[in-house]
Write a protein that binds this DNA or RNA. Sequence first.
RNA 1: GGGCUUAUGGUCUAGCUGGUUAUGACGUCGCCUUCACAUGGCGGAGGUCGCCGGUUCAAAUCCGGCUAAGCCCA
Length: 908
Amino acid sequence: MSTSYDQKALEKKWQKKWQEMKIHHFDFNSDKKPYSIDVPPRYASGPLHAGHAVHYTHIDFAARYKRMKGYNVFFPLCFDVNGIPIEERVERQLNITRKDIDRHKFTKLCSEFAEENIKTMTEQFTMLGESMDPTIYYQTNAEYYRRITQISFIELYNKGYIYKGKFPVNWCPRCMTAMADAEVTYTDRTTKLNTIKFYFKDEQPEQLLKYHSIGKDNKGTYVEIATTRPEMLPSCQIVAVHPSDERAPWLADQTLIVPLFKKEVKIVEDDAVDPDFGSGVVMICTIGDKEDLNWVFKYKLPLDMSIDEEGRMTEICGKYQGMKIKDARSSVIEDLQKKDILIKQDALEQNIGVCWRCKTPVEYINTEQWFLKTIPFKKMVQNASDSMSWYPKFMKIRLEEWVNSLQWDWVISRQRYFATPIPLWECEKCQHVVLAREEDCYVDPTVDNPPVEKCPKCGGKLIGCKDVFDTWMDSSISPLYNTFWHRDDEKFKKLYPMSLRPQAHDIIRTWAFYTILRCNLLTDEKPFENIMMGGFILSEDGTPMHASLGNVIDPLKIINEYGADAFRCYAASCALGVDNAFRKKDVIRGNRLLRKIWNVEKFISNIIKSDSKPEKTELIDIDKWILTKYSKLVKKCTEQMDVFDYSQAMKEVEYFLWHKLADHYIEMAKSSIYNNENVESINYTLYTLGLGILKLFAPFFPHITEELYQEHFKQFEKDKSIHIAAWPREILVDEEAENAGEITKNYIAQVRSIKSEHGMALNAPLKSYATYSTLDKISKMKGSSSIIKSTLNLPKNHKFVEGKPEIQEKITGIAPVYSKIGPLFKNESKKINQWIKEHQNELIKKIEDNGDIKWSDISPANSEKPEEMLVENGFIQIKKETKVKGKKDRSILKFDDFYLEISGDVIK
RNA sequence: GGGCUUAUGGUCUAGCUGGUUAUGACGUCGCCUUCACAUGGCGGAGGUCGCCGGUUCAAAUCCGGCUAAGCCCA
């Protein structure tokens, strides 16, 4: 082994070797218990950023840990390749729209674009040391995957859960296409805010006129309403006013007449109204903007549309029917003016949604869409979610809130190209639906023939469905695809439900919800047992990473500078479920930790100069101590790994390695070894700890742990890789030895820091004579006395004496112990504590005279409390000051309960 | 507007089934080349635990309200 730690070279080496060794492959023939991970298929629209890298690294921790726990881990490499973002990237890259070229040419371009990204990301996963299994690879746009999407749709259709209905969507009247929210961009423009008169249907009392924006003319009493879209008057459905508005009690439930169209609309009270906008009274139309869509859901308004697909006024618009939006608006305004209904026009700055391509303002129009029933299955989803374990727990509430607030079934169709085709044909004449046969899937109805030639109902021509699925239709069956649903019943039985769904919390309402919904509908069972929610990774200043902000962190840059294992240290430091800013210093911390691991392991292997595996033997006290500490570490770390608490688990191991093993145990052990004492016990202990620590670190730092394992331990161990070696177990819990070791460790640490304070090396000789302490401490240290002497380089004849040296001790103060006195005296405690403080001197004297005090010495506590020794039983704490009555040329140092007698010229 | 989360020294973080002296790391300051590691060791300074109120003998911890930030939704 090279003595220096060449991180880059060894990471590359092991990434290559692991692929050859195939240690990450799922074994279909194994009888080990499977642990299956429903990996989020990475979306193929671009390379990984640091946030993705952290998420997948977390999942890799779980996979590697479970492998070491003896599971047959199912951890597929997979990518999500359908949908709008990829279409958009391609359109922007080539500066075309998908309608400019042939549909199938376009999807081919999308595929090619995605394949490039998949190549890059696969490379990135490897460089991060992720142990995904390429033998169970999938991507969601492949025919083998889309086939399962289509079959699942057909089954849902046959169960009666699919129907066709109307739904308003973003629409560009110029491009004549539906648009995803992501395709809508926003722009500022100046428009006119028109204030117009809405007359009351019923006669109104005169008092009403005292309020603002309410008037009366020869046609009656009216309310002023401001709108930027007067052409939408025909689809006005309600009028709203804020409940705290002084006019609200008068206006609520009144009926108004929509000007020009004579339509009657009710006035409602609603908090969402901005009382300062316009006249404080607003009209709600179907559908002017996204805000109106909320009103539609809330008040279940009819979806009467005043604008059609071409941006022309519809049949409900009377004489304006057929006009373009702009013309209709000026025409309506003109008519309003003529009839003296328009009061004023004000300029208004507004921010409107426009088509990203042609900048035409986006409209909402009604479209025919396919729906999957979701509202009837709320309870089913809740029950399934209740039966799963959520990490962190509170994330479940988010799903519950979402499910409870659902008002609408799921719109599963999209007017898009690059996605799974909806496998059905419709009769031109009677709209009868002909589904694809399951055995024919995958099908593309835009090119493939239907299973029957003509409509079986009326003999009409069958037209292939041009719509495709929402991409969540693909990704929400990942547990079904992974477990071979409808591909291999035996495997399905073995693997379903999956063990773990890892994902980010922003897609609870989509990926998690749709998966639970759909898998339950198809299998009557939950899709996974556990669900783990990663947090968000923010850029270093705490803002979210966005390409547009230019603050995206490239994980490869970090890896090139510090190495993958160091990056993984940062990943491990991110707590589950909460947002974490990227912290370079945690990468640097990782770098230092790795070097420490390297040095410790190298040192251990140098000490154990043995040709055979050190066997268990009679153990000395400090070995029992460190092995007990280690066993407790294993227990705690295992518990934390089991609940995916990686940041804590790594911290525990790190602390043990650095501040127990390296700082204390090794310091003790090496002096003993140099003196050729206790060699067998220490060798065994060092071997056990060296290997154990490597294993505990292995899920986090796969490369360095593998290298060190191969170099130092492989020759004595049977496993060909540390990553398939068994996770460590507790080996020894000896509370007494632990306690004794702790005393020894603290004693050494204290003397060591005294040496350091006086500029002495730890192993510099100290001219000392004896250590004094209580019987308890001295007896516990005796077993380690030779270790202590060799570690601190004390003279051979240094004594450990029970008792005190010749010194004077003076009690300088006493203090009540609140946690003891509080529960005993409750309300009285304050008085007692106060009294004790005020009568310190008196009490100190009593303690000095009698050795202790009793409750009867404390006058407010005169009650019937049992007579007990207060100092001895911990009710009172005493502070002492030591005055050294030194022997000639000797001084006494005091720390904790120890007195160290040393030569006077050692420390001045 | 709703739901969830978070708020602890300059920065990050532990503690949060209540116990009075709040953990660790980074940074900072001082000391030490010490034979695995100066990418190390020892020590110091630095916090009224977001704000207000309540429960309690006792609150970083429990309860209520507020403020700010993040995510999701409307």
